[in-house]
Nucleic acid binder design. Structure first.
Length: 281
DNA sequence: AGCGGAACCTGTCGGC
DNA sequence: TGCCGACAGGTTCCGC
């Protein structure tokens, strides 16, 4: 389940392996993965052939591949999506969604078992509107406890939000890149109960939450992300942050800080984990 | 506008 | 042993 640290890990590795290599073929194996289809499979190939990737960037959980003609491929990995660099002679992997063949004999495989991921093609100059709707990135330098106030106040700024702070953290238009794992982990670090209403957070809470979010993202990045079930790096190795998780997936195990049993609840249709003693309210 | 819940998708796991 | 339902969750959509 790729969240910010996993996507960032993938982007850094893709950048080191895929830039400036001429593409000789591209195929879309799963039509339904391409949102707003831009025509036939042939046109998908034409979009890439004889071009190369000029830059690869991350925005929230999205990956933006920019070609040398400034056309762009926007990719979202969903839950189980991955990009794997391989050689053209290698066997075709299961659940292949799209594939990019380099003229030098290399290959980039895009695999997604559950097909929650999406691809979109944008011609040069066409704005990617959905990126404008993303909230603040926890790794950016404008992220601070002040910008986290988006969690507390409604858009018109006149009322306070009633939703659970955990649910608010998952809203990509408020904070971008946070998913279920790091929402639970950040709230543990901040000592805040996930079910607490966002509007009831005090300035000191936002301060700790800011530190918790930044900290957990940076730490996870150092370990190459978290592999719970499916996530793989570009070299198909798992990330190793799983061993560092304090609450996520640790139901009935004891808290690393105080020994209390970790509790699991449901919020907004998601499983949420917390320590009742370290996160009193 | 804010909010909750369903739907999408398939592999895995626990219970019977 | 085998079947079946529950579960995993990022995003979008729908209805209140």
């Amino acid at each position: 389940m790729p969240e910010l640290p996993e996507v960032e890990t993938v982007v850094v590795e893709l950048r080191s392996q895929c830039l400036e290599r001429r593409l000789s073929a591209a195929q879309l194996q799963r039509q339904d993965i391409l949102k707003r289809p831009q025509g036939s499979t042939d046109e998908f190939a034409k979009f890439f052939v004889d071009h190369s990737f000029k830059s690869i960037e991350r925005a929230g959980k999205y990956i933006i591949f920019t070609l040398d003609n400034n056309d762009r491929l926007l990719a979202h990995l969903g839950m189980t999506g991955k990009f794997v660099v391989s050689t053209n002679g290698a066997e075709q992997p299961d659940h292949l969604c799209s594939q990019y063949v380099f003229a030098d004999g290399g290959r980039l495989d895009h695999v997604d078992v559950r097909r929650f991921g999406r691809l979109e093609l944008y011609r040069s100059g066409k704005p990617i509107d959905r990126l404008d709707r993303l909230g603040i990135d926890p790794l950016s330098d404008v992220f601070n406890s002040d910008s986290l106030k988006t969690l507390v106040y409604s858009r018109n700024g006149r009322s306070r939000r009633q939703r659970a702070v955990h649910t608010l953290l998952l809203d990509q238009s408020l904070v971008s890149g946070v998913g279920n794992i790091y929402a639970s982990e950040a709230l543990f670090r901040a000592g805040i109960r996930p079910s607490r209403a966002g509007g009831k957070l005090k300035p000191a809470d936002l301060e700790r939450l800011c530190e918790g979010l930044c900290g957990v993202m940076q730490d996870a990045l150092k370990y190459g992300g978290t592999t719970v079930n499916d996530f793989r790096r570009v070299d198909d190795k798992p990330g190793s942050f799983k061993d560092m998780l304090c609450v996520y997936g640790r139901t009935d195990e004891s808290c690393r800080a105080c020994g209390t049993k970790i509790k699991k609840i449901r919020l907004g249709g998601r499983s949420v984990y917390f320590c009742p003693k370290c996160q009193p309210r």
